[in-house]
Simulated assay, not measured.
Amino acid sequence: MILILGGTGEARELAARVPAISSLAGRVSSPRLPVGEVRVGGFGGVAGLASWLQDNDIHAVVDATHPFARQITANAFEACTQVGVPFLILRRPGFAAVEGWRWVDSVADAARDLPGSRVFLTTGRQDLAEFASCPQWFLARMVEPPEPPMPHRIEVLLSRGPFTVDGELSLMRSRSIDVLVTKDSGGSMTSAKLEAAQQLGIPVVIVRRPPLPPASTVATVDEAVSWLDTAGA
Rank of each mutant, 00 (worst) to 15 (best):
E99G: 14
P86N: 05
C80M: 10
G48Y: 15
Q199C: 02
A233T: 02
A25G: 11
W101K: 01
P149M: 08
D166M: 08
H152S: 14
W137S: 15
V204T: 02
D184M: 03
D63F: 07
E223A: 11
R173L: 14
S191A: 13
V207A: 06
A140R: 10
L212K: 11
R209C: 11
R153I: 11
P213H: 10
D63R: 09
F77T: 06
R173P: 00
E147R: 15
D55F: 04
P146N: 07
A50H: 06
T122W: 09
A108M: 12
R39T: 09
M150Q: 14
E144H: 03
G94Y: 12
A96Q: 15
A192I: 01
L33M: 15
P19I: 13
I2G: 01
S191C: 08
E99P: 13
P67V: 06
F43V: 02
G6I: 00
G48H: 13
I4K: 12
E78L: 10
A60I: 00
D166A: 12
V107P: 01
R173F: 02
S176K: 13
H152N: 13
G161N: 05
S159I: 14
S51C: 08
F138M: 06
G7F: 09
R153V: 10
V204L: 12
I21Q: 06
V143E: 04
R12V: 03
Q198L: 13
G100R: 06
A74H: 04
S23P: 03
G124A: 08
R17H: 09
I177G: 00
A69H: 01
Q126D: 13
H59V: 15
G44D: 07
A16W: 15
S174Q: 10
T217L: 15
A219K: 10
P214R: 04
P115W: 06
E10G: 04
R208H: 14
S185V: 00
L114T: 00
V104N: 02
V204P: 07
L121G: 01
E223R: 06
R118A: 03
P162K: 06
R141Q: 02
R173T: 12
T230R: 09
V165F: 10
